[in-house]
Design a protein around this nucleic acid. Structure first.
Lengths: 197, 197
DNA sequence: CGTTGGCTTGAGAGGGCTCAAGGCCAGTGG
DNA sequence: CCACTGGCCTTGAGCCCTCTCAAGCCAACG
């Protein structure tokens, strides 16, 4: 079954015909490593469903530092919904971290589909609801010290962690690479002690 | 016009009959100052639309400190959607900061209405989409130094600021009361200089 | 083998925290 | 009318965590 179909079926029920309609509205797009899917200053007009690879959404601050706000892997959605909704310039970049493939759907197209297929709107309502809840949790643990942040990250992102460069994880955790490196050393030492008994 | 009707009409179009159906599904609830609308450990099963007053949603950490994640004023929605969705115990409290009145709707009831009135689901989809975008922005400025956080807060929350106790604002900004107090002094001094020329 | 990218280590600085007082009302009761 | 109280905000001193800046290390690659 198509990965998008699987993902939708996990949340709402949709007929084959409806899903075919949905799938027709998407265009596939391949991205090379480090290629940008969205550039800051552009108005984002589409949503993207990740078929393969991994992407990150980040903000470039005044001093040129990158702040990762979001990752996306297989079966995740990624977009700057703030820009889409308000039709204003995005201040985020979305970049492929590995060679990736995404399915693209324009917001206008999506709105049309919502009218035809209420179940699709239910699905997106759930997606946003979950994303919102996840971000609320993230705000909480961003206020904890570095070590706990990392522990939480490791527990939530589990095996994805291995696919991510340290610098990206550090940024996502709101840490510098250096501090992140030190945090990991502390954890390593704890494990050594535990292992040694 | 009913405040909820106004709020819905700003985002989607809905007939009188549909809106009457919606409104019938709500129950009003009055809260005294400091009264809890949601207690940690409870499963949250409802959404709440604020008619009057103000509420805050906060997390009590292991050391007993409160972390405000969200405020709600007139015409805002507030709930622990994470708990609603997953039907698990909430780790948030929602408390009235002033004597307040909210309209309550159970999630089950809401799902039924979604089936009957697709426009309502559109409305909620938009609400969540906006809430998500707002939280993403919040994550960004939570990483900036205290002064900038406060400036941003003041620019976004504008006149609500006067209705909020300092301690709540401090917590929302991820600061202690003391640090927040110092930040405000710095800003006052800046203004004095500017005013004096 | 030099370069480049990604990770680690070190030393010093600084922003925000903790703990502990101190000030300023508004409300209350003598 | 005034002292007392409790809530709320401010101030101060010292500390700690994380940042910055600067090297150093290692593996991959040309």
């Amino acid at each position: 079954m198509h990965p998008l179909r699987t993902h939708i079926s996990d949340k709402v029920s949709m007929t084959e015909q409806e899903f075919d309609l949905v799938l027709d509205a998407f265009k596939p797009r391949r991205l090379k490593k480090n290629q940008l899917l969205l550039r800051p200053g552009e108005i984002c007009t589409a949503d993207h469903f990740v078929i393969g690879g991994s992407l990150r959404q980040y903000y470039l601050d005044e001093s040129g530092k990158e702040h990762v706000v979001q990752f996306a892997f297989e079966n995740w959605w990624i977009s700057d919904w703030s820009s889409v909704l308000s039709k204003t310039a995005s201040f985020y970049s979305i970049e492929a971290m590995e060679a990736s493939e995404v399915l693209v759907i324009g917001q206008a197209q999506l709105e049309i589909l919502f009218k035809q297929i209420p179940a699709l709107e239910s699905y997106f309502r759930l997606i946003f609801q979950q994303a919102y809840a996840a971000h609320q949790r993230r705000i909480l643990w961003l206020q904890k010290p570095a070590l706990e942040r990392y522990r939480y990250f490791a527990s939530v992102y589990g095996y994805f962690e291995q696919r991510l460069p340290q610098a990206q994880i550090a940024s996502y955790l709101g840490l510098t690479r250096e501090s992140f490196s030190r945090v990991k050393r502390i954890l390593r030492n704890e494990h050594r002690k535990t292992a040694a008994g």
